[in-house]
């Protein structure tokens, strides 16, 4: 089938598109992974801050 053989240029055409797809998918994947990690860290820090505030408030009330 000529679609796969690319008129004899398969060795040049397919690696071009394959490499482009690999680079763009990798960039998307790693960008997304970083975002998820940072968001998790941010939520953990926010939860800790709220916890500290709640403790501080309850201590303030009891005194």
């Amino acid at each position: 089938m000529s679609f796969f053989s690319m008129g004899g240029y398969a060795a040049y055409v397919w690696p071009s598109f394959g490499a482009a797809a690999a680079v763009l998918f990798a960039l998307f994947y790693f960008s997304r992974r970083t975002l998820k990690a940072r968001e998790a860290e941010m939520r953990a820090l926010e939860a800790r801050r709220d916890e500290l505030q709640a403790t501080a408030e309850s201590q303030g009330n009891s005194q």
Binding site: F28, S31, R32, T34, L35, R38, E39, E41, M42, L45, E46, R49
Partner: peptide, 17 residues
């Protein structure tokens, strides 16, 4: 957008720390 949101989260993490 994904990378910007990660950068904004980083900045927020720094401030919280």
């Amino acid at each position: 957008i994904i990378r910007l949101r990660a950068e904004i989260a980083s900045r927020r993490i720094r401030n919280l720390r």
